[in-house]
């Protein structure tokens, strides 16, 4: 295949991922209109473990709750946590990396050593410890995920800023009397936007995955609120006789995370002229 074809296929995948994410976001937003059942409503009398049917497109769980409705409502939680936690970690990472890269000196050493130490911890263990310390809530999840996910962005941004600060237009800006904060925020950061957007997109997918893991372990979103991770957990004992309970939320995680990764990769290629797929 020629490079152009590969390029085209690649960007088509990224576009497909983007469209899928858009559909997913819309479906979660308009969940009340799209779902035939209340996601938390139980039907213990004869409504449990129903296989997929017209009335319950993806079946029901051990309490007789509609899986399809729970996946859409759970998507709200997963997407919101992923989005806000990624926004927080990317903002933190950008500020930390830009400060380290532009001002150098002792601050740079301190920031980058903190990054090294945090990266040396397995993130899930760190999260488990942090979540176990407090009463689990959505805000806590976002904050904790945000605080443990900024290091990669910090490294990327620091590297970009290190090379940008030596460019002639920065010297020219200083020669015009621009002060350091103005140079950093107005002249350097817009030049780092591309890599930051890529990092943010990939980070949303990754955060959703981690949130699902935490919820699977029972330390994330608390019942009865629906979450993909906890739904998989609910379904794991019933896997042999009611496979749909764990499978569909698992597929939801898989598709969502893959789509964010496709879009992220596509944007990285688009922003990086050196890249040849």
């Amino acid at each position: 295949m020629s490079r152009a074809t590969v390029n085209f296929a690649h960007s088509r995948l990224a576009a497909a991922g983007g469209i899928a994410i858009l559909l997913l976001v819309l479906a979660s937003l308009f969940a009340p209109l799209l779902t035939p059942h209340d996601p938390d409503r139980q039907h213990l009398d004869g409504g449990i473990y129903l296989p997929p049917s017209v009335d319950h497109p993806l079946g029901t769980d051990k309490f007789g709750r509609d899986i399809f409705s729970r996946i859409l409502y759970g998507g709200r939680v997963s997407l919101a946590i992923g989005f806000f936690a990624a926004a927080m970690s990317v903002t933190l990472g950008t500020l930390a990396g830009a400060t380290a890269g532009y001002f150098r000196g002792v601050g740079e050493g301190v920031i980058m050593r903190v990054v090294d130490v945090l990266l040396a911890f397995p993130r899930l263990i760190l999260l488990l410890a942090l979540v176990a310390l407090f009463h689990p809530s959505l805000v806590l999840l976002v904050v904790v995920l945000g605080l443990t996910g900024w290091m990669g962005t910090a490294r990327i941004v620091r590297g970009e800023v290190l090379s940008l600060r030596e460019r002639e237009f920065i010297l020219a800006g200083r020669a015009l009397g621009f002060r350091a904060p103005r140079i950093l925020f107005r002249h350097i950061l817009p030049n780092v936007l591309g890599p930051v957007i890529v990092a943010a997109t990939l980070s949303i997918g990754n955060t959703i995955l981690i949130e699902a893991s935490l919820s699977f372990l029972g330390l994330g979103v608390q019942p009865p609120m629906a979450s993909w991770g906890s739904m998989i957990n609910d379904g794991k004992e019933a896997l042999t006789h009611a496979w749909w309970i764990a499978t569909f939320p698992g597929l939801a995680v898989l598709v969502t995370v893959s789509c964010f990764n496709l879009v992220g990769d596509g944007m990285r290629d688009a922003f990086d002229p050196r890249f040849e797929p």
Partner: peptide, 8 residues
Amino acid sequence: MTALNPVL
């Protein structure tokens, strides 16, 4: 070529 900020 390089003394102007490329993104502004």
